[in-house]
Design a protein around this nucleic acid. Structure first.
Length: 202
DNA sequence: ACTAGGATGGTCT
DNA sequence: GACCATCCTAGTA
């Protein structure tokens, strides 16, 4: 029996550690009574008020960022470039606006459904590599924003064997150049070495 | 292989 | 009205 990661797990302050730890864990959704699941192979940490690349930088509180300040273990979903939904896991205690962006997953269950949602004719590549595609394939929408990660809420994360450090690459985050040389270079992007489901970005 | 540009809309100044 | 934590297509090679 797979064990669902309890919400407590996401409530400590070390968002970078959580991002690293989530590599290899299983993201599961149950929308319209269909289960889809996938192994998390790429993440990025957004580290609260001090991190200029983080939406909650300087504790900026807006209707959008509100859920980031809630207790860890809930979903933060926002729309990017008007088209894509990006799924994050909120971390930290109440009042700390940090989160982990899920950037790439390796499909596990519900392949048929993912192909349909992605409108992609059985082309395995491009199915779930990239944060926008992850949400498409798993059926994640802004309806999930603010939901606790519980099986009763149709979205949750299951535990899996710890991935050893020599299998994980840490590097700079993607698409955050405007945040300046310091924050854009923090090695807070994690990916599974050699996995073909990580996003194309270098 | 690679690069350039367009799609498309919420959010914030 | 500018700014995006992106992806896809069409062009050239």
């Amino acid at each position: 029996m797979p064990e669902i990661i309890p919400q407590d797990y996401f409530r400590h302050e070390d968002v970078v550690g959580i991002a690293r730890d989530l590599i290899g864990k299983i993201l599961v959704t149950n929308v319209e009574n269909t289960i889809t699941s996938a192994i998390i192979v790429e993440t990025e940490a957004y580290n609260g008020p001090e991190d200029k690349a983080c939406h909650a930088y300087n504790n900026r509180l807006t209707p959008r960022t509100e859920v980031m300040f809630k207790e860890g273990g809930i979903a933060y979903v926002y729309i990017c470039y008007g088209i894509h939904r990006l799924f994050n896991v909120v971390t930290g205690p109440v009042g700390v606006g940090s989160a982990v962006l899920i950037r790439g997953v390796e499909p596990l269950l519900g392949l048929e459904t993912m192909f349909i949602r992605r409108n992609n004719n059985q082309k395995m590549h491009n199915l779930t590599q990239g944060p926008g595609l992850v949400s498409q394939a798993l059926g994640i929408t802004t309806d999930h924003n603010g939901l606790p990660l519980l099986s009763t809420n149709a979205i949750w994360i299951e535990n899996a064997k710890m991935v050893p450090d020599d299998q994980v690459i840490a590097s700079a985050r993607v698409g955050v150049e405007p945040s300046g040389p310091i924050w854009s270079k923090m090695p807070w992007r994690f990916r599974l070495k050699g996995n073909k489901w990580v996003s194309p970005a270098k």
